[in-house]
Simulated scan of single mutants.
Amino acid sequence: MGVAAAKEIQVLARLIRESARTLALTGAGISTASGIPDFRSRGVGRWEKVDPMEVSSVQAFQRDPAAFWRYNLKWWLEFADAEPNPAHHVLATLERRKLLQGVITQNVDGLHVRAGSQTWEVHGHLRTCRCLGCGGRYEFTFLVEQFQAGKNPPRCPCGALLRPDVVLFGDMLGDAFEQAVQVLHGCPLLIVVGSSLQVYPVAALPRLARRLVIINRDPTPWDDQAALILRGDIVQVFEKLAAELGFSD
């Protein structure tokens, strides 16, 4: 990572130690080391190849639910085999050591929850699904088993369609986002990790914090507001941060 990056790690560790309260805001970039492709990185992002409004929106689901599931379930199932990587685990350790209050995440992969972090999943998650008719809730595996048995689109026992408990394009954000706004308001330090900060309203959250650190491969619209920017590999950044703070898990 070089000498300059090492100095940046020292600054980051100092900012965390001195902050009365710190939160993290994470995006897809933190999970790429777990084998989950991101969405907006130049040349490799999923949304560079396809318009999300055409395949992953409320409108797409309503227009052709079977096509919606054929496209989306294939890559959502990749999350099932993914494991938290060292960056997820270091964030959870920071929380256990009272250096981090919790993680606000745009990710639906559930890896922060599995790593042990207190997590506000503002775009939902893939642990459950719900019925658009009776409102019943089921484990996501209930839906997956139907699809894999050839039943597409998957349905509730009442006959109505099932949908994932994720925020689709065109959806309103739910309670987790409102909770994140409340917990973040006036926060002394926000560490943004692996987010392009391009998807609103989540991209506006940094304005609620007093000080901002950005750890991301590519530039973001908030870079000129950040007290510190780290461009290194995210896992390496957190491994070196853990060493600087005196722990390695």
Rank of each mutant, 00 (worst) to 15 (best):
R46N: 05
R46Y: 09
R46T: 09
E48Y: 10
K49W: 04
V50L: 08
V50P: 02
D51L: 04
D51G: 07
D51M: 08
P52I: 15
S56N: 09
S57Q: 09
S57G: 06
Q59E: 15
A60P: 11
A60M: 12
F61T: 07
F61Y: 15
F61I: 14
R63L: 12
D64K: 13
D64C: 05
D64V: 10
P65N: 14
A66H: 11
A66S: 14
A67N: 13
A67K: 15
F68A: 13
W69T: 08
W69Q: 12
W69M: 13
R70Q: 15
N72R: 11
N72Y: 06
L73G: 06
W75V: 12
W75F: 14
L77W: 11
L77R: 11
E78H: 14
A80S: 10
A80N: 10
D81I: 12
A82T: 03
A82M: 01
E83D: 14
E83Y: 08
P86G: 06
A87D: 03
A87C: 05
A87G: 06
A87E: 04
H89G: 03
H89L: 14
V90G: 00
V90Y: 03
L91W: 01
A92W: 07
T93Q: 14
L94Y: 00
L94V: 01
E95V: 00
R96W: 02
R96T: 03
R97V: 01
K98C: 00
K98E: 04
K98T: 01
L99E: 01
Q101I: 01
G102A: 00
G102W: 00
G102E: 00
G102N: 00
V103G: 03
I104H: 02
N107C: 03
V108M: 08
G110K: 01
G110L: 03
G110D: 04
L111H: 02
L111A: 03
V113K: 06
R114F: 07
A115Y: 06
A115I: 09
G116A: 03
G116Y: 01
G116Q: 03
Q118P: 06
Q118L: 02
E121Q: 07
V122F: 08
V122L: 07
H123N: 13
H123V: 05
H125W: 07
R127K: 11
T128L: 08
C129V: 15
C129Q: 04
C129N: 02
R130V: 06
R130Q: 13
L132C: 01
G133R: 11
G133F: 10
C134A: 07
G135K: 09
R137G: 11
E139F: 06
F140G: 03
T141H: 13
F147E: 10
F147N: 07
A149I: 07
G150T: 10
G150H: 10
G150Y: 11
N152G: 07
P154R: 13
R155L: 09
C156G: 04
C158L: 14
C158Y: 08
A160K: 15
L161K: 04
L161M: 05
L162M: 06
L162C: 05
D165Q: 14
D165N: 11
